[in-house]
């Protein structure tokens, strides 16, 4: 156990093995971050006293300029003894549910699409998180990866993940081929969670971005006071990636308030509309972009195209969009 002092701010304890970011979030601090995986570059801090060890020295979230100026990524830095750091805390980043580490038992698995399988874990304590958040899963001594939750908070302690098999991926190979009896679950994390609002929402899901968008839609379905409609654009490379409207409805449970819109980017459309996610969105929302709030999750190319459409072309304020990016 060490102690981290935020310059001009509080001191927080840091458990052995925790990063600067995890320690701050566990203490409820508004530490800016997004991916918790070294990719986004949102959690840069300066270490002004003490020292840290860097988990990933070449993390793409840091530029040469950042390194020259002595910045480090809070999500990739573990304190070695007590330290002091300088950063700008942001009230918008205060975690709604502070993350914690727990043991989680694997209680079930079922295929969702040809390469996405739902894994269900259970913790002793209730599962506390907001729709659209993610958790870090790790095996003892093995890889540690971020996976979005697909269910919603529950007292039974169940945490569901819809995980896409990555060919050659250490973590998914292991999860799919030799599933463990239990894992360490650290979470929840993420700020792209469901927010209250009066506008109907558009969810855009691509690849394993399916899980957080399903969670968001389920969050709306589960709240009797939330009457919003959900327009759900589900993008796949082939028809086999998209199990269909009946499947989506059974999964989400929104009834007539769910408007499921599959779109296929490759040749094998199986009779479904062809195009990319941003094209499907542009066609759907033409002339009425301002009527919706947007939640999007998917691979980098898809997210860049959606950003270009919604922020640059349509000029929507960033507060109307929640993006769950993968790095």
């Amino acid at each position: 156990m060490s102690e981290i002092e935020i310059e001009g701010g509080p001191r927080v304890p840091c458990a052995d093995g925790d990063t600067l970011l995890a320690a701050g979030l566990r203490a409820g601090l508004g530490m800016p971050y997004e991916c918790n995986a070294g990719g986004c570059g949102t959690c840069k801090v300066e270490v002004t006293a003490g020292s840290i060890e860097t988990l990933w020295p070449d993390a793409p979230g840091l530029s040469d300029r950042d390194r020259r100026k002595g910045r480090v990524l809070a999500c990739q830095s573990r304190p070695v003894g007590d330290c002091r750091i300088r950063l700008r805390l942001d009230p918008a980043c205060v975690p709604p549910v502070p993350p914690r580490r727990q043991r989680a038992r694997l209680i079930g698995a079922a295929d969702i699409t040809r390469d996405i399988r739902e894994f269900r874990f259970a913790t002793e304590a209730p599962a506390a998180f907001l729709p659209g958040q993610y958790a870090m899963l790790s095996v003892d001594g093995g890889p540690r990866r971020a996976y979005s939750l697909s269910n919603i908070a529950n007292t039974a302690g169940e945490w569901h993940f819809q995980i896409r098999r990555v060919p050659g991926g250490a973590m998914t190979g292991w999860l799919f081929d030799a599933p463990p009896a239990s894992v360490e679950l650290d979470g929840p994390f993420g700020l792209a969670h469901l927010r209250p609002g009066t506008r109907d929402i558009v969810c855009v899901a691509g690849g394993s971005g399916l899980a957080p968008m399903v969670s968001i839609a389920r969050g709306i379905a589960a709240d009797p006071n939330d009457g919003r409609r959900v327009h759900f654009i589900h993008a796949g490379r082939a028809a086999a990636d998209l199990p269909g409207a009946g499947w989506a409805e059974a999964l989400i449970g929104l009834g007539a308030r769910l408007d499921y819109r599959p779109v296929v980017s490759g040749d094998d459309t199986g009779g479904l509309p062809r195009g990319f996610a941003h094209e499907a969105l542009a066609a759907f929302a033409a002339g009425r972009f301002d009527d919706f709030d947007y939640y999007c999750a998917g691979p980098p190319m898809m997210m860049q195209a959606l950003e270009a459409l919604l922020l640059v072309e349509q000029g929507l304020p960033a507060s109307r969009l929640r993006f769950d990016r993968f790095f």
Partner: peptide
């Protein structure tokens, strides 16, 4: 967040 832009072109040159 110490993101960066090239002033001459506007191109982003530092995450995020």
């Amino acid at each position: 967040h110490s993101g960066a832009f090239d002033l001459a072109t506007g191109k982003p040159c530092g995450a995020p």
